[in-house]
Structure formats: C-alpha cells, structure tokens
Deep mutational scan, measured.
Amino acid sequence: SDIKVHVGDITVELHNVSEEFARLVEEALRLGLNEEQAKEWAHKALH
C-alpha cells in the first residue's frame, strides 16, 4: 500500500510497501539517515 512517513519536517511517500517496511524507514529517518539511505536500510533489514 501507499504510506506517508513523517519524521520531524521530513515527509517520505512510499508506494506499494508493507507496513513493516514503512516502519523501518521511519526508524532509519529517526536515526538520522536521509530518505535514500533509509529506504536502502529498510530493504536490507527485510532480506
């Protein structure tokens, strides 16, 4: 599904992702990663 993740003043739109993936992206953003890094990190975490 499509999910918007908000962290501080950052909003990341995720398309066709699981809630778990979105949660991992949100966690990575909170750790200070940028959007691209957060998506990559979440992807690796799920595989």
Rank of each mutant, 00 (worst) to 15 (best):
S1R: 13
S1N: 13
S1I: 15
S1K: 15
S1Y: 11
S1Q: 13
D2F: 13
D2S: 13
D2G: 11
D2N: 14
D2W: 07
D2E: 11
I3F: 14
I3P: 04
I3Q: 09
I3V: 11
I3H: 14
I3W: 08
I3C: 05
I3D: 07
I3M: 09
K4Q: 12
K4D: 10
K4T: 15
K4H: 10
K4E: 10
K4L: 12
K4C: 07
K4V: 15
V5N: 06
V5H: 07
V5I: 13
V5R: 03
V5Q: 05
V5P: 05
V5M: 05
V5S: 05
V5G: 05
V5T: 04
V5W: 01
V5D: 07
H6A: 14
H6I: 15
H6C: 08
H6E: 14
V7M: 07
V7L: 08
V7K: 03
V7G: 08
V7N: 05
V7R: 02
V7Y: 14
V7H: 11
G8K: 04
G8Q: 06
G8P: 06
G8R: 03
D9P: 09
D9M: 11
D9H: 11
D9K: 08
D9S: 13
D9L: 11
I10T: 10
I10P: 04
I10D: 05
I10E: 06
I10F: 09
I10S: 07
T11S: 10
T11A: 05
T11Q: 07
T11E: 11
V12W: 01
V12G: 05
V12H: 06
V12N: 04
V12P: 05
V12Y: 01
E13R: 07
E13H: 11
E13Q: 12
E13P: 04
E13C: 07
E13G: 08
L14P: 05
L14Y: 02
L14Q: 04
L14H: 06
H15C: 07
H15P: 06
H15E: 08
H15I: 12
H15T: 10
H15Q: 10
H15D: 06
H15Y: 03
N16D: 10
N16T: 05
N16W: 08
V17G: 04
V17S: 09
V17Y: 06
V17K: 06
V17W: 07
V17E: 07
V17I: 08
V17C: 06
S18C: 04
S18A: 07
S18L: 06
S18M: 07
S18Q: 06
S18T: 14
S18K: 05
S18W: 04
S18G: 08
E19R: 12
E19I: 15
E19K: 13
E19G: 10
E20P: 08
E20D: 11
E20W: 14
E20Q: 14
E20I: 13
E20R: 14
F21K: 00
F21H: 02
F21R: 00
F21G: 00
F21W: 08
F21A: 00
F21M: 03
F21P: 00
A22W: 12
A22L: 05
A22C: 03
A22Q: 05
A22I: 07
R23E: 04
R23M: 10
R23A: 10
R23I: 08
R23N: 08
L24Q: 03
L24W: 09
L24P: 00
L24Y: 12
L24H: 06
L24I: 03
V25M: 05
V25W: 03
V25H: 01
V25G: 00
V25R: 02
V25T: 02
V25C: 02
V25A: 01
V25F: 11
V25P: 00
E26F: 14
E26H: 10
E26Q: 11
E26P: 00
E26W: 12
E27M: 15
E27T: 14
E27V: 13
E27A: 14
E27F: 15
E27P: 00
E27Y: 15
A28V: 01
A28C: 03
A28N: 02
L29T: 02
L29I: 08
L29M: 09
R30E: 06
R30D: 02
R30C: 08
R30V: 08
R30F: 09
R30H: 11
R30G: 09
R30A: 09
R30M: 12
R30I: 10
L31D: 06
L31W: 12
L31S: 11
L31C: 09
L31G: 07
L31P: 00
L31R: 12
L31Y: 12
L31F: 13
L31A: 12
G32Y: 01
G32A: 01
G32H: 02
G32R: 01
G32L: 01
G32S: 01
G32P: 00
L33G: 01
L33Y: 13
L33F: 11
L33W: 07
L33I: 03
L33S: 02
L33P: 00
N34E: 06
N34S: 12
N34P: 09
N34Y: 03
N34A: 07
N34I: 02
E35V: 14
E35S: 11
E35N: 04
E35T: 12
E36R: 11
E36C: 08
E36V: 12
E36M: 12
E36G: 09
Q37R: 08
Q37I: 02
Q37M: 10
Q37N: 07
Q37L: 09
A38G: 01
A38F: 01
A38V: 01
A38Q: 00
A38D: 00
K39F: 11
K39I: 14
K39W: 13
K39S: 03
K39R: 14
K39E: 03
K39P: 01
K39G: 02
K39T: 05
K39H: 04
E40W: 14
E40L: 15
E40S: 10
E40T: 08
E40G: 03
W41M: 04
W41E: 03
W41R: 04
W41C: 02
W41F: 13
W41K: 03
A42W: 01
A42P: 00
A42F: 01
A42D: 00
A42K: 00
A42R: 00
A42G: 01
A42V: 02
A42E: 00
H43N: 09
H43F: 15
H43M: 12
H43A: 11
H43P: 00
K44H: 09
K44R: 14
K44Y: 13
K44C: 10
K44P: 00
K44N: 13
A45N: 12
A45H: 14
A45Q: 14
A45F: 15
A45K: 15
A45G: 06
L46P: 01
L46W: 13
L46N: 03
L46V: 09
L46F: 11
L46K: 03
H47I: 11
H47Q: 12
H47W: 05
H47D: 09
H47G: 11
H47C: 13
